[in-house]
Design a protein around this nucleic acid. Structure first.
Lengths: 191, 191
DNA sequence: AACCTAACTTAACGTTGTTAAGTAAAGGAG
DNA sequence: CTCCTTTACTTAACAACGTTAAGTTAGGTT
């Protein structure tokens, strides 16, 4: 109940608006009750994020079967950005706010397994691309490539989330920006 | 005095650690004194950001004379990211935190003037590149290109700021990632 | 001398995350 | 049935936060 209430509050109103007291109100318990189940607010947020990391990884499931690594990369990039657009408040907590890193053994996510770890999934696409010699020959470091591709799509959606209300910039349609970013990255990698 | 104290606190300890009371302590006034000069905390932060936007634009000054648009783009990208690495806490406030947009007439920044508006500077580079036919022929929209290039370099440094402590990722050296990002973007745009 | 204004201070308000202390119910163990 | 422990809460409070109402002082103007 706590997680459900917190998730909905975070998703609809954003981090600032969510207080322990409001979560407690929503589930009709006292604020203190939450502390019986979660060490503090940070723990609650982290458990929510952890679940969201999993749902993000699951978004990639259907993409895994796309044969061509470049096309798979394109689709993964789009799927990643769509996740951010659909759940901007979750995305902020997951990727735009520095948290003290969670000890690996407390996480529900098995690192390195592309089924549940989105970074591992991205890296596996890149590794495939390297193996099939789809990239420029200077490119050899899968981690460096993965991190930079990630940074690219992350930049597109995080800039949108933080700055879409700054209307002194004539923002282009978000869909166009998403497609162009993926295009640019793939074109930059391609042979 | 208030601005100086606030700037130092924000720069060294990050947003969360800075309270009106601590700023007041530092300058040896009462917290209320600050409210005589600034409407609220948000106004204070915004005035700091505004000054930082200006210093960012000034970083670009020396780059303006680089003749080749592609090389200028590369150097501007690097300079942008270096700014973020050197002042991560300022960068977070400027680009990673959503604020209600400031009315244009209250800002110290003259929008559209590349001397003081970093986005306008970037756009002018792109416009030069387009005029000199340095880009792929499908590319025509300077704003779309500028926004995507910006997103790319923003992604690199904002991901670093938010996630550099997550050591389950084998982060590549930041300098390498910066160079590779600029490379990738330019290669993607180039003819 | 009287007044005004700018620049403060003290004291407080309401809200936040969090905790100390107490309570009520449920489930064995003897 | 009684005693004890554990689980799941509550009420009341704490310190810290952003902010404000009300009062005070110093300097200049009339």
């Amino acid at each position: 109940m706590i997680l459900d209430a917190a998730r909905e509050l975070f998703a609809t109103e954003g981090y600032e608006a969510v207080t322990m007291r409001r979560i407690a109100d929503r589930i009709e318990y006292s604020p203190t009750a939450i502390y019986f189940h979660f060490k503090d607010k940070e723990s609650l947020v982290r458990e929510l994020c952890d679940a969201d990391f999993l749902t993000l990884a699951h978004q990639f499931h259907r993409i895994a079967r796309v044969a061509d690594p470049l096309e798979r990369l394109r689709q993964a990039g789009i799927a990643y950005m769509e996740f951010g657009i659909e759940k901007p408040n979750h995305y902020r907590l997951m990727f735009m706010t520095p948290h003290p890193a969670m000890p690996a053994d407390e996480s529900a996510i098995e690192r390195g397994n592309p089924e549940v770890d989105a970074y591992a999934f991205l890296k596996s696409i890149i590794a495939d691309g390297l193996a099939q010699k789809k990239f420029r020959k200077e490119l050899t470091d899968a981690d460096l490539i993965a991190q930079t591709v990630w940074a690219g799509v992350h930049g597109a959606i995080s800039l949108h989330i933080a700055k879409c209300n700054d209307d002194w910039i004539e923002w282009r349609d978000m869909k166009k920006r998403m497609r162009f970013m993926v295009d640019l990255l793939v074109k930059g990698l391609e042979k």
